[in-house]
Computed example of a mutant assay.
Amino acid sequence: MSDAALQVLDGTQLRGLDLSLGDGSFTGAAILDIAHSRAFSSLLRLSLPDSVKASALTRLRAPDADAFRSAVYAADKASDVLRDYITAIADELKDNPLVVSILDGSTLRLLLKDEDDFAMLAESLFTELDDEDEGKISKSEIRNALIQMGVEMGVPPFSEFPKLNDLLRKHGADGEEKLGQAQFAQLLQSVMQDLEEELSKENVVVIRNIQVLNGSKLRQLLANEQELNTIVEKVFREKVDARDGSSSTEIIRSYLEKNAKELGLPLLQAEVAAVLLYDGVFDDVITKEKDGDELDKEKLAKLVKDILQKFAEQLEANPVQQDLSYVEDELS
């Protein structure tokens, strides 16, 4: 169950932003602050991660970030810098979109409304938290219960919503008094009711640990002849070393699956959509291989490029969202 449909921030929200500045001069630092403030208003009141800010600043190709921040710009030049920086943020989000959830209390409301769902949730949480199987847990375990519920069940991280600490104190849920399952459920219900009310008044936007694969990395790769040639060389070497009679397309597919993360492709095991994507691309590839014929290096290079181009086109048309926690587990 998810508190709200996932929303993708891909920079389009910034394209029509008001970039006007008043008269006078502005330091680079002041321009950045203005840009961040206006982006905040357009991006669901989400503060941009430092990584996005740093990448956008890099796109400006400022040779010295500290010198840029301390430099003073006249109004006309400051407007140009503001426009370029906002464009850089939008471009960064286009290449690496952020996936967010807006927590507005709706999922908590649904859980509380359905007595059976809430009873099952409370029982499950109590059982998980009762490590010693004593039939009792401390009041303070309510905090861990909320953490376990997480964003998927509409509970924001404590770091993103400090008012959660106030709610726990309000209900005395920070003590060590022991509670049975029924008492635990009653306390959890009270905390969830207050949290639902708070979130309905003050929504919380949370960045999810989800990567959007939209072909941007592949397009950069296809535009870089040196990197593309390196991949072709590796695929060609695997073809030369192959002893099982695999076709060129089979060898290419195997290589892409093994190096998916580095290439900007989805892990095949991560999503059903990834399996459909790979199958669709390779089913659609015309290899021009004749029975028993071998592709030379030049033809193999063209085939690799054609396949990567098809992946880029498909991902641009139908981006794949990939849970990064799953990816990290697979690669660890």
Rank of each mutant, 00 (worst) to 15 (best):
Q7S: 10
Q7H: 07
L14N: 12
G16R: 04
L17Q: 10
L19S: 07
S25E: 09
S25F: 08
S25N: 11
A35P: 08
L43I: 00
R59M: 15
V72H: 06
D76G: 02
I89C: 02
A90T: 05
E92K: 13
E92T: 13
D95S: 14
S101E: 03
I102M: 04
L108I: 05
R109G: 14
K113Y: 09
E134S: 02
K136P: 09
S138V: 02
K139A: 04
L146E: 00
V151C: 01
P157F: 11
P157K: 08
G172Y: 03
E177Q: 12
K178Y: 06
Q189R: 13
K217I: 04
L218K: 12
R219V: 00
Q226I: 04
L228W: 13
L228P: 10
V240H: 13
D241T: 09
S246I: 00
S254V: 00
L268M: 15
Q269S: 08
Q269C: 04
A270S: 15
A273K: 03
G280L: 04
V281P: 06
D284K: 00
V285I: 02
D291K: 07
K297F: 04
A301Q: 02
K302E: 14
L303D: 00
Q309K: 08
K310C: 07
A312C: 11
Q314D: 10
D323E: 15
Y326C: 14
V327S: 11
E328S: 14
E328H: 14
